[in-house]
């Protein structure tokens, strides 16, 4: 199966690039020429990606979470998958290029550097750990999408304020819709991260003898979780809206990215697996 995995690994970034080109063409032209076909193509790419993750898991006998570049391909999948679900749920099809480009980035790096590891630590073969990492990544994918829509919101907000009626004004959906998309993505991310943290809290202490609540990754995830929790609650209960919530989402995303990078590359703890 290894040759097949190798071929699919090369095909994946190509598929995402093609999806990006189709979405970008529609965005630039403002037409609806590929309105359905672009969605179908993205669906095909996502299914193909899922198939790739599945055959990797079967062939190497562990979920694809054993090194940074395996994590990257899962992240690329999670971003595209979450966007696809969001597009289906809202039927807003014009913002694809801004999201798909993130998947391209992660998948491209993964395709180049990924290794076929067969020998890994026993704990990494656990399916519970697989679900923990997968849901955590889905959570971060949700936050990424939320931040992208947040940035688009701020750009459009500024353009309208300054009377600039260019491509951004003509092609992006309304401010209210961008705000909603950013919010829904954050909710999806928050829900996924909640599941990841629940699994982690229950399972980690039993799996790792050196488990510590003071673990930096645990603390940073908790901070991110609290931040998004406050953001969502303030919108739902305190009727916060517009730039305030958007800014909170972007700050949450920046903290999430920085803390993940710092804890992954610098700190040494039971939570580092590679």
């Amino acid at each position: 199966m290894k040759p097949l995995i190798a071929v699919v690994n090369i095909l994946l970034p190509i598929l995402y690039v093609i999806a990006f080109i189709i979405y970008s063409y529609d965005f630039m032209k403002g037409g609806k020429k590929f309105s359905n076909s672009k969605r179908l193509f993205l669906f095909f790419a996502v299914i193909f990606h899922f198939f790739y993750l599945l055959i990797r898991t079967i062939e190497f006998n562990h979920p694809p979470i054993t090194n940074v570049f395996e994590i990257f391909t899962v992240l690329a999948f999670a971003v595209s998958f979450s966007y696809f679900i969001l597009e289906l749920a809202t039927d807003i099809r014009g913002t694809g290029p801004f999201i798909i480009v993130i998947s391209i980035l992660f998948q491209f790096i993964s395709t180049i550097f990924i290794e076929d590891l067969v020998e890994v630590r026993e704990v990494l073969r656990s399916n519970l750990l697989g679900s923990h990492v997968l849901t955590a990544l889905l959570g971060y994918a949700g936050f990424t999408i939320s931040a992208v829509y947040g940035i688009l919101y701020l750009i459009l907000f500024k353009e309208i304020k300054l009377n600039k009626f260019g491509l951004v004004f003509n092609r992006l959906p309304s401010l209210e819709i961008l705000e909603k998309l950013s919010f829904y993505a954050a909710v999806i991310g928050f829900a996924a991260l909640t599941i990841a943290m629940t699994i982690g809290t229950i399972w980690l202490p039993t799996a790792f003898p050196d488990f510590s609540l003071a673990d930096p990754k645990l603390i940073s995830s908790f901070v991110v979780w609290i931040l998004y929790g406050i953001g969502i609650a303030s919108k739902v209960f305190a009727n916060w809206q517009g730039k305030k919530v958007i800014t909170l989402s972007i700050i949450g995303f920046i903290i999430a990215i920085f803390s993940t990078m710092l804890t992954n590359f610098l700190a040494q703890s039971f939570h580092s697996f590679y």
């Binding site: 459009l156 309208i160 959906p173 309304s174 401010l175 209210e176 819709i177 909603k180």
Partner: peptide
């Protein structure tokens, strides 16, 4: 048209 770019509904 401009109003619709700010409010969706």
């Amino acid at each position: 048209q401009l109003i619709e770019k700010i409010f969706s509904n």
